[in-house]
Design a protein around this nucleic acid. Structure first.
Length: 562
RNA sequence: UGGGGCGUAGCCAAGCGGUAAGGCAGUGGACUCUGACUCCACCAUCCGAAGGUUCGAUCCCUUCCGCCCCAACCA
């Protein structure tokens, strides 16, 4: 017999392979130190969640650590509102940075020192060129750039100018510090990249202490090195920056050499995962805010009802690779169903109530049943009541049943879930011909088992008791965009694909009384419908609001669609 | 166009010279007081294409094709 190979605890990916090799080679003493480095200029979205799960997950699995570091080098865009939200989101996802909460701005002094060293070593110079001149001098994809007129200043001159830049002598945009590398480099990032720019702007942490700020390239790698990061994981668009990352570490005289590793960012069907675009949706009020349940932000997913577990599982399932990809929304939904299936209590909500009068039950005759809250009845039960008037789902009744219809129709019988068998005897209509009620009878002998005569009946449908049900609002959410790749159209604004039906509000829903004191954030399965959460913002005692997280799979709907 | 990447089923994704994992979706069936769950089966003679090396190639080489990223004092 062959040895059964145990399933790996985590799906393998190229980064783990690489780390395994590093450890085998004894690099960094076998240590794994990663970091999640958001810029606090917006809320985190699913793409960030992927990165968070990757970085913190690696640290966890290899017994290392993961830092949360804010890349706050651009005071124009950044704000403490975002740092607070980001911290909350990372925590909610289930990760802990311990004592390692850092800011690139913590290193402004050291970064300044590195710049001074580079100037002294002839690796950087102060340029008087305007942004236009710098752009023009950079050359094109095919043509080399030209030397900056300031390129040959002496270290002494540069030092003087840089000191005065820092002292606030020059206005914004008048000068920059550039690295002196190679204006003919085929990699544009190496054509004397800008390191520092002047910005007389208040910084959310350092206040007015600085009027020059390092940019990403000059802050990121150095911050990694300072913190002892071993594997600096980022997305593919930074690949061309890696030579600069390495060069700068050397020029700054940093001995610790983190390895930059790039992976493909996440794209999801029918939504956008770009901070810029998400900001636009919020700013122009196409959604209610960053935490709108339709938003792919962590805050939005949270309010929508997604669990941290489901998002972590999603990150595991989609994997980590270097190929561009667009993941289907169904993948995320599947993760939520798998997570909540066993965890969420199963209860009843009638979304669009149709009144049913049970003629063989007297007024005031109330039957009660103890019914299971979970598949495993031993995990708990709740009591439901049935009275002469009940409500069923309007879509569970039709006057002319199609082939394979297993629900209610004139003359037909169905099971009232967890209760008796219901028979439709009469249809009540209003003057306009709209069905406004059913007159039925129930088989009071058919509780709990098959009918004694083994007659054929339809499926079980859900219902609530008219005299016991609690009114509720139900919000049905759907994909935010009607196009699978809204941002992928060259000549159409992504907002033109906004799905007008992404939110449908049902005001007249009825839920069973067990839910009367449901708390914000409580998640349930409404049987035969889907998974829902009590809205954390708008739900109040006596005025319950449920958000549909995802529907249950619906093979009947699929059949009908064919 | 110069440079850097990437192309394995509808969607993700393993694979690292020995004859295509797994998940999602889909299909068929079993079960069922949720048309849910669960369970069983099916679902790439083929790895962008064409050549070459080899006893043998998705894995090596060559050429070609396609897609993505880079010319912000953003990150």
């Amino acid at each position: 017999m062959t040895d059964p190979t145990p399933a790996p605890a985590r799906p393998n990916n190229f980064i783990r392979t690489l780390i395994d090799a590093d450890r085998a080679a004894g690099k960094h003493g076998g240590q794994v130190v990663t970091r999640f480095p958001p810029e606090p200029n917006g809320y985190l979205h699913l793409g960030h969640a992927k990165s968070i799960c990757l970085n913190f997950g690696l640290a966890r699995d290899y017994g290392g650590r993961c830092h949360l570091r804010f890349d706050d080098t651009n005071p124009l865009a950044e704000d403490t509102e975002y740092v607070d939200a980001i911290e909350a989101d990372v925590r909610w996802l289930g990760f802990d940075w311990g004592t390692h909460l850092h800011y690139a701005s913590d290193y402004f002094d050291r970064l300044y020192g590195f710049a001074v060293k580079m100037i002294a070593d002839g690796h950087a110079y102060v340029s008087d060129a305007t942004p236009e001149q710098i752009r023009a001098g950079r050359g094109t994809l095919t043509d080399p750039g030209t030397h900056d007129p300031s390129r040959d200043r002496t270290p002494a001159e540069n030092l003087d100018l840089f000191t005065r830049m820092r002292a606030g002598e020059f206005p914004d945009g008048s000068r920059v510090l550039r690295a002196k590398i190679d204006m003919a480099a085929p990699n544009l990032n190496l054509r004397d990249p800008i390191l520092y720019r002047i910005r007389h702007t208040h910084h959310h942490r350092t206040g007015d202490a600085w009027c020059i700020y390092p940019n990403y390239d000059f802050a990121h790698g150095q911050s990694d090195a300072i913190e002892g990061i071993t594997h600096s994981i980022c997305t593919l668009e930074f690949e061309d920056h890696r030579p600069l990352y390495d060069w700068l570490l050397g020029a700054c005289g940093l001995d610790h050499r983190p390895q930059q590793i790039e992976f493909a960012r996440l794209n999801l069907d029918y939504t956008v995962l770009s901070k810029r675009l998400l900001i636009e949706l919020v700013r122009d009020k196409h959604v209610l805010g960053w935490d709108d349940p339709r938003m792919p932000t962590v805050a939005g997913l949270r309010r929508r009802g997604f669990t941290p577990e489901s998002i972590r599982e999603f990150a595991d399932r989609i994997g980590v690779a270097r190929a561009d990809s667009i993941v289907e929304l169904g993948m995320l939904e599947s993760c939520l169903r798998d997570d909540l299936g066993p965890k969420a209590p199963r209860v009843v909500a009638v979304h669009d109530p149709l009144e049913v009068t049970l003629t063989n039950l007297a007024e005031g005759d109330v039957r009660t049943f103890d019914v299971p809250l979970y598949e495993d009845a031993a995990r708990g039960t709740r009591t439901v009541s049935l009275s002469r008037t009940i409500y069923v789902e309007r879509e569970d009744f039709t006057e002319d049943p199609p082939k394979d219809w297993k629900r209610l129709a004139p003359g037909r019988e169905v099971r009232l879930r967890q209760a008796y068998i219901l028979k439709c005897n009469e249809v009540v209509k209003d003057a306009a011909g709209r069905v406004i009620g059913l007159v039925c009878t129930v088989d009071l002998d058919a509780l709990g088992g098959k009918p004694v005569d083994k007659r054929k009946i339809g499926n079980a449908i859900h219902w609530v008791s008219g005299s016991h049900a609690v009114p509720a609002e139900i919000r049905l959410y759907d994909r935010l965009f009607s196009d699978p790749d809204p941002a992928g159209h060259k000549d159409a604004d992504f907002k033109s694909f906004l799905n007008a039906e992404s939110l449908v509000v049902l005001k007249g829903a009825l839920v069973e009384p067990y839910l009367a004191d449901a708390k914000p954030g409580d998640r349930v399965q409404f049987e035969r419908k889907g998974y829902y959460v009590v809205d954390s913002v708008d739900s109040k005692p006596g005025a319950l609001v449920f958000n549909r997280i995802v529907s249950l799979k619906d093979t009947w709907a699929k059949l009908v669609a064919k």
